[in-house]
Design a protein around this nucleic acid. Structure first.
Lengths: 143, 143
DNA sequence: TTTAATTCCTTGCTTGACAATAGGAATTAA
DNA sequence: TTAATTCCTATTGTCAAGCAAGGAATTAAA
């Protein structure tokens, strides 16, 4: 499985929050219940999202989380790169990866390069806004 | 990293063999040396390829491996599905996977479905023939 | 018939990432 | 002061990836 739970849950958190942004702050407990994911595990994922600015957290009573940017400004690719570390199909195509000595005559590198491009282009075309459901799906988000 | 060494090495083995098919059978040792991969590890990968018919093995002195089909008849997608198990981005899209209860209203499922389609379409367009190098790259393969 | 060279088969090992849990400190509103 | 939160630092269990070892079966050639 290419995409780990971290990445998948991260997106679900963001969409959930985007769809329930009428309330100022949403508690992690609410999200966890709606998404049927362990609250404790979500915590570790939310931490990443806060650090990256996708989410803002407020402590204390009445606290919770809300989006740090508008849904259409949160790119799916960015979220996945954050949570997955890299989406490159092979090590030699990772951002900070040391170049492979075989690269100049590697037969498979072009294949992986192309795969990387295809995946990046596809995921790069989505934002959290695109993942949000319609009102009849239980979406609170207005306008 | 999406693609494990098993899948990557499997393709390199097949391409290596395709490029050196002038000799009837090629020993695993030769392949391992050319590809700079542990012979023992290659053994476990080659076993899969033989079972699937991509390769034929001949035991004993003078033995080795050769392609079980022509390079243009070996699909990259098929090889990767064999060695990787599945290429589906998430569990709910795996072949024999049990359907997810959240699927009907899952916000992210369409995203993963699309990603799966994009990846499958891309990889499905390649065969081992497409990965083979030109003669000047040290390719023995003639016509 | 023996020997050397191979593929085949089973088994075990090590490591690291993933997935999740636990417990408490810091903060905030009521 | 209290209750409700987010934040922070660990720890644990599980599993697959990536090997390595040793020997059995087979084959060609000396």
């Amino acid at each position: 499985m290419m995409i780990s739970t971290r990445g998948r849950y991260a997106l679900r958190i963001l969409v959930d929050l985007a769809e329930h942004c009428s309330e100022e702050y949403v508690t992690l407990r609410e999200i966890a219940e709606r998404q049927e994911i362990s609250e404790k595990y979500l915590e570790s994922i939310v931490k990443l999202l806060v650090r990256a600015g996708f989410l803002e957290g407020l402590r204390g009573k009445g606290g919770g989380y809300r989006l740090g940017r508008r849904p259409e400004e949160i790119g799916v690719l960015d979220v996945l790169r954050l949570t997955e570390g890299t989406l490159a199909p092979v090590a030699c195509l990772e951002e900070g990866g040391r170049p492979c000595a075989r690269a100049p005559h590697c037969r498979t590198l072009p294949l992986w390069k192309g795969l990387n491009d295809v995946v990046t282009a596809y995921l790069g075309g989505f934002t959290v806004r695109d993942l949000m459901g319609k009102a009849e799906d239980g979406n609170d988000y207005i306008i």
